[in-house]
Nucleic acid binder design. Structure first.
Lengths: 235, 235
DNA sequence: TGCGCTACATACCGTCAGTCGGTATGTAAT
DNA sequence: ATTACATACCGACTGACGGTATGTAGCGCA
């Protein structure tokens, strides 16, 4: 007996990773318009064109697919952390500056992706996603930053009481950055373009200032991408 | 006919606010040992000694009672924000210093409560609670901080590019503080008391340093509570 | 050609937040 | 005291949803 024939549901067999990608694609697409809390697995099933059994063959739970989505978003929103390796011979200040500037440059180059993900994580019903994504990106970025800071501290390049706290604050700056950028983008689209542009440049100066002050560097030690690189954010 | 008699369930009528308090107490007590996600309203019902109908007469949803709990926790964990009013005549540096020192002092005076709430918010299954509590405390503390900063900026007491970002970083410090304190408390209880004590004092110095550097104050401008006030945390 | 593994499908289950009709207990006017 | 109304409260029921049990189709492989 063939229950598939009587319901009309064909059995499309795919490679496991392809199917998982397809399911993730479907989930991500629904997530673009609905909060995770209000999304049911049945909706994901329908969008992905698969049955419940098929779904639970690839993902052990709803939380499981959320975790997979988080990894995907983390890949799309954080630099591959190759910065700062080659220039280990240079001075500490240059190394940190290269790291900060490099990761920021990467983000600006992928502004569209980053902004859409941050917007996503910020929406109602996506609290769990937000928290997991924050944890994951922290796991990916904090160690390298701490390593640079503690090495600089060890080499006597500067004075800092607490590497962990400083690293956390620097990370906090790069987190809130995109929330601010989104605000400014919305403001610019609402007509206040000139003010938004000024605020954008102000934010850039503020970050540079904060970095330099937190590390007690002389003004101008940290080089950030030029203003023109930021302006792309406002269309 | 009295259906209550046949089930033995008496009908205890209470004033609305009393009942709500009782239900909140019950929920808070369960929350001390279980994550919010795994708590069912039926469990709260049983602990509070009330029926489902009675519960939903006072709270419109499970999220509703969570919101009420968040308000309760926020009351218990944030200073009443009376600091910084009377001393508006004094200089800006003193005013900010008084605010920072005052709120920190309040927290240290209520360390037990604060730590238990932070621990609670950090546990698995309490993600929604954590986020809501963070939002609520931010709503309560950020405005005053921004007000002080922007006034100081206007009066020319110092140079800062972005009040909002600076305020956010200062708030971030006071957030991560208690996570660090919990780590140190655990370390001390695990036997590493001397090291924990040293780290505790280091954290104090690090905060002072960060405040002063972020605002470009000379070292020693910001006064924090004495070391002895911190030591209470480790028993 | 049959055997086994894996990718599926369907029917079903348990749980749980929330609802609904109705009941007891005040409280205030007549 | 009786009526009238408001509010606190009850418990059975429901609908939805995440997850499972059990069986079936396709593909590789000997």
């Amino acid at each position: 007996m063939q229950p598939d024939e009587k319901t009309g549901a064909r059995r499309e067999r795919m490679a496991a990773d392809q199917r998982q990608h397809a399911i993730l694609d479907a989930a991500a697409q629904i997530l673009a318009t609905h909060g995770w809390d209000e999304i049911t697995v049945n909706e994901i099933l329908a969008a992905a064109g698969i049955s419940k059994g098929g779904f639970y063959h690839h993902f052990s739970s709803k939380d499981d697919i959320l975790a997979a989505l988080v990894l995907r978003f983390a890949d799309a929103a954080t630099a591959a952390a190759t910065a700062g390796q080659g220039s280990s011979g240079a001075g500490f200040v240059d190394r940190l500056s290269a790291y900060l500037c490099g990761s920021l440059e990467w983000e600006l180059d992928h502004a569209g992706e980053v902004i859409s993900i941050v917007r996503l994580a910020q929406r109602a019903g996506n609290g769990a996603l937000f928290l997991e994504l924050a944890r994951e990106t922290e796991r990916r970025t904090l160690p390298a930053l701490k390593e640079i800071l503690s090495e600089g501290l060890k080499s006597g390049a500067f004075e800092i009481e607490d590497v962990d706290m400083t690293a956390d604050l620097i990370l906090r700056i790069s987190r809130t950055r995109w929330l601010r950028f989104i605000e400014l983008q919305d403001a610019a689209r609402a007509g206040d373009r000139a003010a938004a542009l000024a605020d954008l440049h102000r934010r850039r100066r503020a970050e540079q200032q904060a970095y330099e002050r937190l590390l007690d560097f002389p003004s101008g030690s940290i080089q950030l991408p030029p203003e023109s690189a930021f302006e792309r954010i406002l269309r």
